[in-house]
Write a protein that binds this DNA or RNA. Sequence first.
DNA 1: ACAAAAGTGTTCGATATACACCCATGA
DNA 2: TCATGGGTGTATATCGAACACTTTTGT
Lengths: 241, 241
Amino acid sequence: MSTISVDCVIFGFDQNQLKVLLAERWIKDQEGNLLDKDYTLTGYHIYQDEDLDSAAHRIVEDITGLEGLHFEQFYSFGDLNRLQKEKDQRWLKQFGDVFSERVISVAYYSLLPSTKIQILDKDRNIEWFPVYEIENLAYDHHKILDKAIKHLRYRLSHEPIAFDLLPKKFTISQMYKLYESIYNTKYDKRNFRRKVSQMKFVVPLDEYQSAVANKPAQLYMFSRDVYEATKKDHHGFFFNY
Amino acid sequence: MSTISVDCVIFGFDQNQLKVLLAERWIKDQEGNLLDKDYTLTGYHIYQDEDLDSAAHRIVEDITGLEGLHFEQFYSFGDLNRLQKEKDQRWLKQFGDVFSERVISVAYYSLLPSTKIQILDKDRNIEWFPVYEIENLAYDHHKILDKAIKHLRYRLSHEPIAFDLLPKKFTISQMYKLYESIYNTKYDKRNFRRKVSQMKFVVPLDEYQSAVANKPAQLYMFSRDVYEATKKDHHGFFFNY
DNA sequence: ACAAAAGTGTTCGATATACACCCATGA
DNA sequence: TCATGGGTGTATATCGAACACTTTTGT
């Protein structure tokens, strides 16, 4: 018998950076003096009458209010010592017995089309952080985050999930910056554009950016219809890295 | 509070076929009449004082007696109805209350260098089955098997784990048949050989097959030393599929 | 006029694919 | 001598990588 929790790595893309939602955690001693401040991924234990996937959806919905996002379970974490660091134990004590025994976390990530959302959970201080600048995570959450990024990279090279992180209508530049940010690398602008222009399911629109202080970029959209219809041609998606 | 079990998909390679270890299950009614016969993956619930990885190792060790195999956790299965088919319930009843509530399975696969091993678990009838001919699996075990194969394919294209399924000294043909069998496809013999001959870490030996009724094949071995030393050249492993 | 991002083609090397015959051995 | 699987080379098409300048807009 063990306690099961679901942890969600919620990714967003904003200002050319891949970001993650983190909740603040203030560690205090008995007298209420601040000992440490760090961050956790968003998670919660599962209810007895819900599937693992449903729990992940519930957790993200409670925070963002958004439904129908892209979800992916990527790993489960169950080492005996994963909650045993001193500050973690100090923190967990306040919740009583629930976490006194081992906790196994089934980890999911989800993709948010915008970081400009209302955070509904007002009890906790939850904010966006650029993934490559994150330190000071609680428990084994840095390990979880690392695995999430690796899995996201894999999936992104096989399936058209980048568009779940972009607005409905986006520019090639946004897409290009998103890929750079997820793979934490640089691409050649012209080669990237050529590659995208071969993807029939990235459809150019007769719309352009407005009110920008430079040449307005053309807008594109992702068509799942076209993607499905041409699947046999592109053997999946395949954007190498 | 939930029960956690670990299920292991144990892969082996024999007679040019990818195989999996399955345990027989005889479903009987109260009078002992045989109602159904099917198969399960090998699994067991975790002990309170062991990591998930350790449980997977223990399970495989109890069956095969082998240590130090390649292991990989690939997914967790926790749907509410995963054990609720009638024949599954009938089967589980004999074990009392342990499985009356939900069971979450953390699934691993492991790679065996040979199918010619002693099966140590004499209580159950455990045997090898060709992966592409398997039907009639209990619970959601077919779903688990499918995910395992997909994950194995992915991993195989990024890391040199094929050699964990081959004898220490192997022929290029064996390797080639192994890849065909895992990806369930056909390769061009010459192109495959060329590709392998570019892999510095697949080292030709001055040994040949003996007692075969045809031209004896040269033997090769995998060198992890060379693999690690040349990692930067091959950006991982990369055998496309 | 200038700053800032959009958009555009070509060359070169590497890699994937397709394809057919001779060789060494045991039976 | 025959059956069986081992082993070899070339030509073509495709793809990835490198690289610099002009365009359009707002200020």
